[in-house]
Nucleic acid binder design. Structure first.
Lengths: 209, 209
DNA sequence: GTTTAAATTAAACAAACGTTTAATTTTGCA
DNA sequence: TGCAAAATTAAACGTTTGTTTAATTTAAAC
C-alpha cells in the first residue's frame, strides 16, 4: 500500500529537517539527531543534499514554490478589492497555519547574518509575495475603494500579525488565554479567529469612511 | 576620563554578546569569537557568567528591566484612551528601534524549543508588557471610546508590525524601497513613518465610526 | 545468473565547540 | 612594603560538530 507514510529517505530527511529546524533552529539541530529521527544513516544527508546548508536550501525551494502562483491568480480574478482582500487573508492565514513549521524556520533565518547570500535568497522569495499583495492594495486605491494608507507598512502589519501568532505557540496560547498543554494554537477555531481579526482590521484601516 | 567607551570587561562581554547573538544567533555565536571581539580571554565568559547560557540570561535580565515600569506609568496617567494609544505607539517603537538587536535576539529565541524554561522566561517578560497594553485597550472600550475589537489579536498586530520591520533590516529596506547599502532602516525618518502608520491603523481599527 | 550502478553502512576525520585548570598578573587594603 | 583576593592568561580538557571514506548491501538491467 502506498500512502503518505511511505516516504523515500530523501523526503523523510526533508520532513524531519523541517520539524527539527522549526523546533531547535538550524544551528541548534545536529545532522546526527536529524538522521536518527529520520531513521537514516548520518551519511545520507551528505549523499542526497551535499551538506547541511544545502539541505535547508532544498527545504526552502520545496516549500516556497506554490505560494506565488496562488497570489497571482488572486490578482487576476474578477473580484472587487474588498473581496480580494478577504480572499488574501483567508489564503495567507491558511497557508501559514498549514506550514507553520516552515514559516518559523524562514522567519528565524531571515533575521540572521544580515547580508549573507542566504538572507538574500529568502528575501527574494518573500519579496515576490510582497509585490503581489502590493498590487492588490494599489489596485484598490486606484479604484478609490481603499484609502491612501502606507502600503508597505500595511502589508508589514498583515504579515507581522500572522507571524506573531505562529512564532511561538506557547506564547500565543498564553496570550489568548488557552492552556498550552491541552490546546494548540493551530486549531480551526483559532485560525478562524485570526482571519476574522485581520479582515476586520484591514477593512477598518483601508476602507474610506 | 570616564565615559561610555570605558566599559569594564563584564559590560564589554554583554555588549558584544548582544551584537553577535542578534547577527548570528545564540547557537551560531561561539564563545571564542565573542571573546575575541570583546578583547577578552575566552575564560572570562565562564568567570563572569558561569556559562554561555547564563550569559544570554544575564543579557535578558539587563534589557528587560525598564520596560514594564514605563508602560505602567502610561496607564496611570490622566490621558484619554486615544492619547494613551498614541503615547504607547511612540514609546514602543522608540524602545524597539533603540534596542533592535536585543529584540531580534528574543524574538528568535522565543520561537525555539517550545517548552524549555528559556522560552517560558521570555514569555513571562513579554506577557507582562502584553497585559499592560491590554489594560489600556480594555479601558478605552469601557469608556466606549474604542470599538469591541479582538483585543489580544489587536495587540499581536501592534507588536507584530514593529517586529517585522526590525526583524531583518535587509528585507525591510527592500520592502520600503531604500538601498540597504546606503540607508539604515533604523534612521529617524523611518521610525517616524512606522509610528505614523501604527497610530493611523490602530485608530482606524479601534475608534467608533 | 552475472554485472553495474545506486543505496546504505560503520568507522574515522579534522575542526570547532563550551568549559576547566593551574599558573600568573594585577589590584586594593593594612 | 607585604599580603590576600580578584582578575587574567595560555593551555588543555573531553565532546560534539559536519563531512568523508571505503566497504558492503541492495536493486535494476542485460
Amino acid at each position: 500500500m502506498v500512502n503518505k507514510m511511505v516516504l523515500d529517505k530523501r523526503e523523510q530527511i526533508l520532513e524531519v529537517a523541517e520539524e527539527l529546524f522549526a523546533e531547535y533552529g538550524f544551528e541548534g539541530t545536529s545532522v546526527r539527531e536529524l538522521a536518527k529521527k529520520a531513521n537514516v544513516n548520518v551519511a545520507m544527508v551528505s549523499y542526497y543534499f551535499g551538506s547541511k546548508e544545502q539541505l535547508i536550501k532544498a527545504l526552502i525551494q520545496l516549500r516556497a514554490g506554490t505560494f506565488k502562483q496562488t497570489l497571482e491568480a488572486l490578482n487576476n480574478d474578477g473580484h472587487s478589492p474588498v473581496e480580494k482582500l478577504n480572499l488574501l487573508v483567508d489564503f495567507y492565514v491558511e497557508r501559514v497555519f498549514t506550514h507553520h513549521r516552515f514559516h518559523r524556520v524562514i522567519n528565524r533565518e531571515i533575521s540572521l547574518h544580515q547580508r549573507s547570500s542566504f538572507n538574500k535568497t529568502i528575501s527574494d522569495i518573500l519579496l515576490k509575495n510582497f509585490e503581489e499583495i502590493k498590487k492588490l492594495i494599489l489596485d484598490g486605491q486606484k479604484k478609490k475603494v481603499f484609502r491612501n494608507v502606507d502600503v508597505e507598512l500595511t502589508i508589514a502589519s498583515l504579515i507581522g500579525t500572522i507571524s506573531k501568532v505562529v512564532q511561538s505557540s506557547y506564547f500565543s496560547c498564553r496570550i489568548i488565554n488557552i492552556d498550552p498543554d491541552k490546546n494548540s494554537i493551530f486549531e480551526e477555531e483559532h485560525k478562524k479567529r485570526v482571519k476574522k481579526h485581520l479582515k476586520d482590521m484591514m477593512q477598518a484601516h483601508l476602507l474610506r469612511k
